[in-house]
Nucleic acid binder design. Structure first.
Lengths: 344, 344
DNA sequence: TTGAAAGCGTTACCAT
DNA sequence: ATGGTAACGCTTTCAA
């Protein structure tokens, strides 16, 4: 049979509560046992090979010391992109020193509903799903555990702090770089999945805003499906754009590959900019100019903030006004951008 | 206040037990409620916005639907190596379809003791720490939850199934490849950390066995500390070896870098073989010949087996004799191995 | 088929 | 400073 607190208490000749206080850090009050008694208790626990029942404790205290990270695509580390690994590293760095366990929960990853976020298994949630549905936004807003979002513009969900790239600043940098190279007609390229994400819209809007401010025509948005043949036009005179700003490095990588296939020369015919400045940028041909997003630091900050929310919510404090953090994003200029094509 | 089963039961005019059966899948018995009543219950739950308390349930049932993965080095995804991501992918692939949550628990990652493995938070443990101490081996053996190990030769811990590379076969392949290139004097290179791992010893032994069987002299083991100057000798005549078999790709990568620094030409002066055949092999100069270890599949298999152990242990069955699986490892020949240097 | 009641092991509260 | 007691929310047995 399982050895319980009671057994230990009995053997040590003390009350269960004393054992709890000594062995399990004494929940709230200070330790209230003499050193001698504490030693006896510890010895008894050792003799009996006492193992605490964490579930009983978690149940009683309403705390699990677990934080869940919710990614978008079910869950697979994509070797082409370091994004997930970056996030995980930042999260672990924030959690582990405080002995919080990091969990990946399939129920939370699955599409639609965020139905299970408040079922008590997690003390807090780091929400990394930019594909926010109306339904889950609502669930997030009324959740009974602290939540922090990444990759969503401030105010996306009322009361939920966000940690997000400064898309406006990023796009201003991109546009300014392109202008300095003589570009005027720019397009935003996005994949059909990201197109529906909050950040997809945010970046499209940001690029538009930056272009307008610079006196350029409104950038067209190209939703790039499996068929990339639309890129073929950039090899010929009269192409509608001289520069493409892509939603992600991964997408930009595909664009580069397709351009090569269609005989479109980058950056001679068209300039291409990615987003994330991941290691992938160094391996493409040509090397990819990209906006640098400090993913790991964002994840670390977001998680640290989440921990502080957890602590204060346990103190019974009411949540303060939700803060949001924007991250300045530099443009890492590599070889995929160059002077605007002159013969179009 | 929290909405409990009782509240729902009250509103629906039924007993808490009925609600439990309908909403939470009815633990053991079949559903014992009429459709009409079930509907009423569901409606009541919806009205009251009932949220199950997972901790209470887990506590009661002694099941958490969580599996922990324990890595060696505290926890950081190393971008240079895809090992951790590979493991995680295999694990997720096995767990998620069955709705098991994957947890990374710092307390388990920290050095020494495996003190917390049986505290009820996890239904099973995937142990990926080759650095097995006597103490934790003992803890693992007497744990009250199912455990499965990776990267440990069969029988490393009594009763714990292992999923491991077939190091003997791998080394036989490596030696045979080297012999075909005219090599005779081989060394095994390992870092000071892995040197203490079970698999470190296993591979050293395997290489020795393979060399002996082939009639070669016993391979020396070189423990490579921070100072790689020992590699310098391979640029000069009279070097003691013509081929180095390294414990890991990462280590082999460092060896290649140091060789370049010391003017040692690979593979002209010395041949180098790595272990894992990770993407890193394609990016080194020269491209690294390496033993291919199917990490993701190993992790998948190990996790699937763990799940089956969990299921049978919940059925109250006694654990069968522990099975162990060895994985055949091909040698991926790239450019870091060549004919044995003739002028030494 | 349904309901009542008894715990699961721990911690919080309130006496002493 | 210490110990008794109750309660957390659920599931399971047992009786109806």
């Amino acid at each position: 049979m399982r050895v319980t607190l009671r057994d230990v208490a009995e053997r040590a000749g003390v009350s269960p509560m004393a054992v709890s206080a000594v062995l399990n850090g004494s929940g709230s009050r200070k330790v209230t046992v003499t050193a001698e008694k504490a030693e006896r208790i510890r010895q008894a626990a050792l003799d009996l090979r006492y193992q605490r029942n964490s579930m009983a404790s978690a149940f009683r205290q309403g705390r699990t010391n677990q934080v869940a990270v919710v990614f978008q695509n079910f869950g697979r580390f994509i070797l082409r992109s370091t994004y997930r690994a970056d996030v995980m590293n930042g999260v672990m760095e924030a959690l582990f020193p405080h002995d919080y366990t990091l969990s990946l929960c399939p129920k939370l990853m699955r599409s639609g509903d965020a139905e299970f976020i408040s079922d008590g298994r997690f003390d807090g949630i780091l929400w990394c799903r930019p594909d926010l549905s109306e339904a889950s936004a609502n669930t997030l807003q009324h959740a009974s555990v602290p939540i922090v979002m990444m990759h969503a513009p401030p105010g996306t969900v009322l009361g939920v702090p966000t940690f997000c790239a400064d898309n406006d600043g990023a796009m201003r940098r991109a546009v300014s770089h392109l202008i300095s190279l003589g570009h005027e007609r720019i397009a935003f390229v996005i994949d059909p999945v990201s197109e529906h994400s909050v950040e997809g819209h945010a970046r499209a809007d940001a690029l538009q805003g930056a272009a307008r401010r610079a006196g350029l025509p409104d950038p067209e948005t190209i939703i790039l499906t499996r068929d990339h043949s639309v890129l073929g036009r950039y090899a010929e005179p009269g192409a509608p754009h001289t520069a493409l700003v892509c939603f992600s490095d991964e997408l930009a990588g595909f664009v580069l590959e397709s351009c090569e296939r269609f005989g479109v020369k980058v950056p001679d015919h068209i300039s291409v900019i990615g987003f994330d400045s991941s290691p992938l940028c160094e391996t493409t041909t040509p090397r990819l100019t990209s906006v640098n997003q400090p993913v790991e630091r964002m994840a670390f900050d977001a998680t640290s903030h989440l921990l502080s929310l957890i602590r204060s919510s346990e103190g019974g404090e009411q949540a303060a006004a939700s803060t949001s953090t924007l991250y300045d994003c530099q443009l890492d200029v590599r070889d995929s951008t160059g002077p605007a094509c002159s013969y179009l």
